[in-house]
């Protein structure tokens, strides 16, 4: 299993090398792995890459935190109250279906072009999956279990923490995982569209505009690896927290 995973990576690399060295694809558009590797080392040794990763990661995580702080309580409320659910169904479905870049210009008009609108744009992208999944978690929770524990004489507030939230946790984690991927995507888009000078997204776009193609590839590779690693880390954390779910 593990061997196949490593092998598949090597095959991809080989394919890339084949395409670029053979000249099937113009070497200007697709530099060789060696060239990109050199650029990569250069970016690492200058420290630039870490600054960019830190910038993107910092924004993504901050946005994710804000989204969770808003999204989980809102999702719980929607899940618990049928009335509220009916009120908010249309607005949530509407804004959820709206691709977040569509409102970036609007955010820039209201919040300016600095960090605030970058964070707000990403929060907009992340908050809806969290709301929707949390609400699902509450709605799909085991009614019978809730009734039975409630009959033991627990207050509504205690019920929330003892039964409703743990029961919804697997769904909340699905929402958070989706939001995590979205936060990285959205942050990079935001970095490309709004001014700034730090971030993986910014650097991809900057390299593109200056025709530094190997640098662009190095950053694209970084973006991919970043997303992959962050997801792996989250799944590991999730499995530890939700040890009972897979039983």
């Amino acid at each position: 299993m593990k061997r196949r995973v490593i092998l598949s990576g090597l095959v991809l690399l080989l394919l890339w090398a084949l395409l670029s060295y053979s000249g099937v694809v113009d070497s200007f558009f697709l530099p060789t792995p060696l060239e990109v590797g050199e650029k990569f080392v250069e970016l690492i040794s200058s420290g630039r890459l870490f600054v960019d990763i830190g910038g993107t990661f910092g924004r993504a995580i901050l946005s994710l935190k804000i989204s969770a702080i808003i999204g989980v309580p809102v999702g719980l409320l929607i899940g618990l109250s049928t009335g509220l659910r009916e009120w908010l169904e249309v607005p949530i479905e509407f804004f959820r279906s709206l691709p977040s870049p569509a409102i970036f210009p609007l955010l820039m008009v209201f919040l300016g072009i600095d960090e605030k609108s970058k964070i707000a744009g990403t929060v907009f992208a992340c908050v809806f999956p969290i709301i929707v999944q949390t609400a699902y978690g509450v709605i799909n929770g085991n009614r019978w279990r809730v009734k039975l524990v409630r009959r033991m004489g627990f207050s509504r507030r205690r019920m929330l923490f003892k039964v409703v939230i743990p029961e919804a946790l697997p769904y909340i984690f699905v929402g958070l995982r989706n939001a995590l991927s979205l936060s990285l995507i959205s942050t990079m888009v935001v970095e490309m569209l709004m001014t700034g000078n730090i971030g993986v997204g910014y650097s991809i776009f900057d390299a593109y505009q200056r025709f530094r193609i190997s640098e662009m590839y190095a950053y694209i590779l970084t973006a991919g690896l970043l997303g992959w690693m962050v997801n792996k880390l989250f799944v590991y954390f999730e499995n530890r927290q939700l040890h009972w779910v897979r039983q």
Partner: peptide, 20 residues
């Protein structure tokens, strides 16, 4: 299975009614 709290261990399931 529908009534135990799967995220808790055995003893903490039994204590549940006393937590009131």
């Amino acid at each position: 299975d529908m009534t135990l709290l799967p995220w808790r261990n055995t003893v903490d399931n039994i204590t549940l009614p006393l937590e009131v």
